[in-house]
């Protein structure tokens, strides 16, 4: 009897250990983080990143529902909700309703949280941000200056020794204005660069968009600022759609192709018609 009880206890113990081990394998811990973006001092948004260590590697986790909060994690401070995409990111724009909380102090915190799912534990991430703004302007001789200021005791104060990327905004990426992509701010918070891209195609009026970036800064997040300048070469797009090209529609083939093709066809069929005429001549000779 005693032996049977011992066996039963051992079995239950083993089962508990197995189940807990199984549960551990099933559920992964989730790591959440937030990035802050301020685009051209106008649009502010937050991006949550969800990742988890699976098979020894960090992987981006999609389909995680996340909630964003400003200040602290309370229902009153909720500013938006989202679901992570295939890159593990979820984006939310900071709404006007968060204005009061935002204006409370020079520093602001954001919290992102996700509930536990079938495969992941609940997760939470925070971001402590110092309010800052980036400005871009131009001087004579095509000099570009970008100024970084942070809010200190209600006063915008220059920030020293922060890398600012100064570039020209193109369709799919930014193009450096000179050989160096980034410039450090001085004691006045100014980073300056010389524009060295002559004859760069702009819009129809030759306008280019200059852009300054502060990327992934621990204190200020991601900031950017833009300015349009007439430093480019004017470019007007001319559509090739209805021109005579090899890829054009019927009736719009290149003249050289038409000349070649039709002259070959006319020459060869001219010979054939001549030969058919010879058959007629042979008939006439035979009838004579």
């Amino acid at each position: 009897m005693k032996k049977t009880s011992q066996q039963l206890i051992a079995f239950l113990l083993l089962l508990t250990i197995s189940l807990s081990a199984f549960a551990q394998v099933e559920k992964n811990s989730l790591s959440l983080s937030i990035s802050y973006y301020n685009s051209n001092n106008q649009t502010q948004y937050l991006v949550a990143h969800a990742k988890s260590k699976i098979d020894g590697k960090f992987q981006m986790i999609p389909n995680i529902p996340v909630s964003f909060y400003i200040g602290s994690k309370t229902p009153e401070t909720l500013i938006g909700k989202g679901v992570t995409n295939e890159k593990g990111d979820a984006l939310v724009f900071i709404p006007a309703s968060a204005k009061d909380e935002w204006n409370k102090a020079a520093k602001v915190s954001f919290v992102v949280a996700s509930p536990a799912t079938k495969t992941f534990d609940e997760g939470e991430g925070t971001l402590d941000l110092t309010k800052a703004k980036l400005q871009i302007d131009t001087l004579a001789d095509r000099k570009i200056v970008a100024t970084l200021l942070e809010l200190k005791d209600s006063i915008w104060t220059p920030v020293k020794a922060v890398d600012v990327r100064i570039a020209i905004k193109r369709m799919d990426a930014d193009l450096n204005v000179a050989e160096t992509p980034a410039y450090a701010t001085d004691s006045l918070g100014v980073a300056s660069a010389d524009f060295k891209r002559d004859s760069l195609l702009g819009d129809s009026k030759g306008n280019l968009v200059l852009i300054a970036h502060v990327d992934d800064n621990d204190l200020y997040g991601n900031l950017s600022s833009e300015k349009t300048v007439p430093w480019g070469k004017s470019y007007t797009y001319i559509s090739q759609f209805d021109k005579r090209t090899l890829f054009a529609r019927r009736g719009k083939s290149p003249i050289w192709l038409e000349l070649m093709a039709y002259s070959i066809v006319v020459a060869v069929w001219g010979i054939l018609i001549y030969l058919f005429a010879q058959i007629r001549k042979l008939k006439q000779l035979g009838a004579a």
Partner: peptide, 11 residues
Amino acid sequence: FWKNTPSQIHI
């Protein structure tokens, strides 16, 4: 019509 004449042969 073929009569094998020299002119037909030539043509």
